[in-house]
């Protein structure tokens, strides 16, 4: 299957408690190869961006296996703490994706996301996180190709930065 298996396995809806335990540290893309591969956590809303990723898979379009998707009911559900936690537990980059403004399944959820992450994104940069390690995207359920493109570009950007040390808390 073109869709990365571990990404699919992690795509099940997670509870908050599960997300905070050991989500990002499991062996993945770098297992066995000895070369470093970036680990990227993508928080995708169930209705658009996750469907977009799904469409990429069913259309047999390949996107980097570095992306591990965490499916959330709405991008408005993404607490900034989740982003920090992902970095703490070993993510080298974090992506937030939701429905295009105006298309939210819950009408207005992504408008809140937009405000919140406009502020958070600038702030993460301000405290010294490299701006290329965090990004936000609007990806609809029909944009399988955009998901693939975004995943590729983001992965390459993060790869060129090397492993993230900031906030990292792994043994």
């Amino acid at each position: 299957m073109p869709v990365n298996e571990s990404a699919a396995a992690e795509a099940e809806m997670m509870t908050e408690a599960e997300m905070t335990t050991d989500g990002a540290s499991g062996a993945g893309a770098d297992a066995g190869t000895g070369t470093w591969e970036p680990r990227i956590v993508a928080f995708c809303c169930n209705w658009c961006s996750y469907a977009g990723a799904d469409l990429a898979g069913t259309s047999r379009k390949q996107y980097p296996a570095n992306i591990r998707i965490v499916r959330v009911p709405c991008s408005g559900r993404i607490n900034p703490q989740y982003i920090l936690r992902a970095f703490q537990r070993g993510a080298d980059g974090v992506m937030v994706a939701g429905c295009h403004p105006g298309d939210c399944h819950y009408t207005t959820g992504n408008y809140y996301t937009r405000r919140r992450f406009s502020v958070v994104q600038r702030f993460l940069e301000y405290v010294g996180l490299h701006p290329d390690r965090f990004s936000g995207h609007w990806i609809s359920g029909s944009e399988g190709e955009k998901f693939v493109q975004t995943a590729r570009e983001f992965t390459e950007k993060v790869r060129s930065l090397g492993p993230n040390e900031k906030m990292r808390d792994v043994l």
């Binding site: 050991d22 540290s25 499991g26 537990r89 792994v170 043994l171």
Partner: peptide, 9 residues
């Protein structure tokens, strides 16, 4: 205690 995979402290 904290655990990360099989390792813990």
């Amino acid at each position: 205690e904290k655990a990360r995979g099989p390792e813990a402290e």
